[in-house]
Design a protein around this nucleic acid. Sequence first.
DNA 1: GATTGAACTGAACGCACGTTCATATAGTCT
DNA 2: AGACTATATGAACGTGCGTTCAGTTCAATC
Lengths: 195, 195
Amino acid sequence: MARKTGSHSEITGPAVQRAAEKLFARHGFAAVSMRQIAAEVGVQAGALYNYTADKQSLLFDLMKTHLDELLAAWEETPKGDTATDRLEAFCRFHISYHLDRPDAVFIAYMELRNLEPDNFAVIEGLRKTYETTLEDILRAGKEAGEFTLPDTKLATLAVIAMLTGVTTWYRDDGRLSRDRVERIYWNMVRKAVAA
Amino acid sequence: MARKTGSHSEITGPAVQRAAEKLFARHGFAAVSMRQIAAEVGVQAGALYNYTADKQSLLFDLMKTHLDELLAAWEETPKGDTATDRLEAFCRFHISYHLDRPDAVFIAYMELRNLEPDNFAVIEGLRKTYETTLEDILRAGKEAGEFTLPDTKLATLAVIAMLTGVTTWYRDDGRLSRDRVERIYWNMVRKAVAA
DNA sequence: GATTGAACTGAACGCACGTTCATATAGTCT
DNA sequence: AGACTATATGAACGTGCGTTCAGTTCAATC
């Protein structure tokens, strides 16, 4: 319904998503108005409704797209054979992917409570799917004797919380390179689950 | 200015803080109206202004009180002699204290961006103070040869993120007791920083 | 029993919200 | 050139916001 042929401007549709993502991440869904989003795009508020049904859909589409792409990207990541190798792949993938998309990540973790029930169920399902990929690695490693885990589910949540925390402080112009951050986190995770 | 002598009801002041804490934690600061808070207390919106200057002060006071009490409670916690003992004390304290006050914790971590600049500076300072208590333990342990940490600051943030994550899933009627959760987390932290 | 004053109500303030829609504009196609 | 269509405007809608305040209520005091 958008941008089939050129018109006043080009590519306004994607620009709306980008503006919403930026503003929702900075100020929170409830604190951002459609008029602010429109101003960021450079149009009037009414024009936004050529690209989204309503404000709620804007949030849902942002989160759904993020999680779909996250899961797809993980599918395509080389993983190695042993559980230890796959855990390292997961840690590095999670940090790297999340540092590339700080706004989308922030929204996906913070704005769950602003989703209407049906939308929440969809997003929560995708989030659980992603958690399960880590849980499967940890369980396999435990059964293979590579890891020692008193509670696999708890370890899953602990590792994800720890890794995701990187997005709250990492800066590209900061003291540590991404590779160094990945390496340090992986070392902590490796030791934490070690047999 | 409130509750010197009885009147229509009793103890409305503290009830306002409790109502605000509950609603801010559930729906987010920006999504909660003064009228909703008043309804939760059982009063009209105008009456709230006998107990708070404005909505922003309600948020700030909630966060400031939480962090002041958090720091005071840590000061009074027995800590042991070695860095390892103090780290265990910190992990158990952090989990236990946070599980006792899920709403206040949630607000303190999620609503920072809704603080006006001056208020933000105060809260951020208190948060940094708390972080420093952990960082000091980790550095001491590193210098004493008890821990191996490629980057003390990063380890501080990683441990706090991991421990705080417990508030997102723990339920009092869930599968694991608090003591068991504390023990499992402490074991992961202990191994992650081990020499 | 009159007075006081804190606590509260209920209406009002100006403003911003999400959303709609008639209208205008400007590219594309024949 | 003229018709078509996607796109955008800008005003308007009803609603709810944070906040204020004149007036009411009522327990405590003298």
